[in-house]
Nucleic acid binder design. Structure first.
Length: 452
DNA sequence: TCTGGGGTCCTTCCGCAG
DNA sequence: TCTGCTGCGGAAGGACCC
């Protein structure tokens, strides 16, 4: 999908279409998640500190991400992909590999192009958004092709032309070559994919280590045999928070770690998982990051156990000077717990009391109802003016633009933050369904897993 | 100018066991 | 009994991806 988060916001907010839109964290330490193509003209790009983006594009619209909405649209797109082939490997909310061959699409240029074009049209019809398609004989090349296709395009790399196409490109084009590896290679005089291939496998292994060296050499020769894998097991679950200002108070650090441990366990349980290794992550005032981990005798999803382990790990960390980020994670995942095993040995058990209540998070006393929050970009409904979205808030006021995905650009009005006529609302669908067009009951019902 | 959040994979080091 | 080798799990850190 092209500039996915920003495109969704533009589709749902007519007044932002054709305008610079930046989606990301709006706090003092936020970074850009996605910038619309109009914002990229000013030099704004993903992962850039928000403060820098604001300097470059002071007149852009700045919005906080609405992941629930993006997820629902992502699911619509993934559904279209699964109609093409049973082998779909999602990479993120807005990207996936599809094995067309496994879906019965003949591997000739015409059939592939046709499938790609039809998919793009379907995505546009169902979501109202544009997506780009890269067609090639391997995942690496398909990915590169789709990058070249953006925005709103389709690129096919013909078999036999791969090396000629890759040769002159920067090594940074290859997946797995980031800033550090790019620098490393540049210092060795390697700038292009051709130079990478010329360097030879041994030299690359010497420079970058075994795994990376072998992998990169293969990619430089356009060799990539990795299959499309539909089901990927989760290997870890973690939560982390960056604080607007560094925390110096050791007691507060402790309570934050407990809160994170609880949140992590809730996620873990939500996924029906448990884990053996508890990881504490601390980013200090100077951005140095350290992790401490502890492996238990067996997997757990008990909040008390995770809290205690996290607290023990924190004991071994010096936080003088302040911390800017704290995180708690669990890895070594299993879909049973140590307690389950004990219970089995004891011949079954009654309801697990810890499992019943998903831990009401004692420390997490949400914002007092009096001070309601109006995050920029979120939908609202006004008793008189109808549906709109928060354009900004502060000083006891909230500014709302009243428009919907299929209205024209709307009017702006300002209210008191505690105006009883104003309340948060669910996002509206980007594409309104015509009358008679139901939810579209699909034949076949279940999506059958198994048969790996 | 000051760097998010949620992941994956790799490397290195260390201690332990055979 | 001592030493070396090897493999493995755990811990820590780093690079990368979206």
């Amino acid at each position: 999908m092209d500039a996915f988060f920003a495109s969704v916001e533009q589709a749902s907010k007519p007044s932002l279409r054709g305008k610079a839109v930046v989606v990301g964290g709006l706090g003092p330490r936020g970074v850009v998640a996605t910038a619309s193509y109009e914002a990229r003209v000013f030099g704004v790009h993903s992962a850039m500190p928000m403060s820098q983006a604001r300097r470059l594009a002071p007149n852009a619209a700045y919005l906080v991400p609405r992941f629930a909405l993006y997820r629902s649209i992502s699911e619509q797109v993934m559904e279209l992909l699964r109609a093409l082939s049973p082998l779909v490997e999602p990479l993120s909310l807005d990207e996936a590999f599809v094995d067309l061959e496994a879906g019965g699409t003949a591997w000739d240029e015409r059939s592939a192009r046709l499938a790609g074009a039809r998919l793009r049209a379907d995505i546009r019809e169902v979501t109202g958004l544009t997506g780009s398609v890269g067609l090639a004989a391997s995942k690496m090349l398909a990915k590169i092709a789709s990058e070249q296709a953006k925005p709103d395009g389709l690129v096919l790399i013909e078999p036999g032309t791969e090396r000629a196409l890759l040769g002159p490109l920067s090594v940074r084009t290859l997946p797995g070559v980031g800033p550090a590896t790019g620098d490393h290679l540049r210092r060795a005089g390697i700038h292009t994919v051709d130079e990478l291939a010329e360097a030879g496998e041994d030299e690359l292994v010497r420079l970058l280590g075994k795994a990376h060296g072998h992998a990169l050499f293969a990619m430089a020769l356009a060799r990539d045999e990795r299959p499309v894998v539909a089901e990927r097991e989760t290997k870890s679950v973690s939560v982390e928070d960056t604080y607007d200002v560094d925390i110096h108070d050791r007691v507060r650090v402790g309570t934050e770690v407990q809160r994170l441990a609880d949140r992590c366990v809730r996620r873990l349980r939500g996924a029906g998982l448990s884990g053996r290794t508890i990881v504490l992550k601390v980013r200090r005032y100077d951005f140095s990051t350290l992790t401490r981990s502890e492996t238990l005798r067996g997997p757990t999803d008990d909040p008390a156990v995770v809290r205690e382990a996290a607290a023990r790990l924190l004991d071994s960390v010096d936080t003088t000077g302040g911390v800017r980020l704290l995180g708690v994670g669990v890895s070594g995942l299993a879909d049973y717990t140590q307690e389950d095993l004990f219970a089995q040995a004891a011949g079954g058990r009654e309801e697990d009391p810890v499992r019943e209540e998903p831990e009401a998070a004692p420390a997490a006393e949400g914002p007092a109802p009096a001070e309601r929050r109006w995050p920029a970009g979120h939908d609202v409904r006004h008793a008189v003016h109808g549906h709109g979205w928060v354009q900004g808030s502060g000083l006891g006021r909230v500014t709302v633009r009243f428009e919907t995905p299929d209205s024209g650009p709307g009017r702006v009005k300002t209210f008191r933050v505690d105006d009883p006529a104003l309340e948060p609302a669910e996002p509206l669908p980007l594409v309104s369904r015509g009358p008679g067009e139901g939810e579209g009951a699909k034949a076949g019902g279940e999506a059958g897993p198994e048969s790996g």
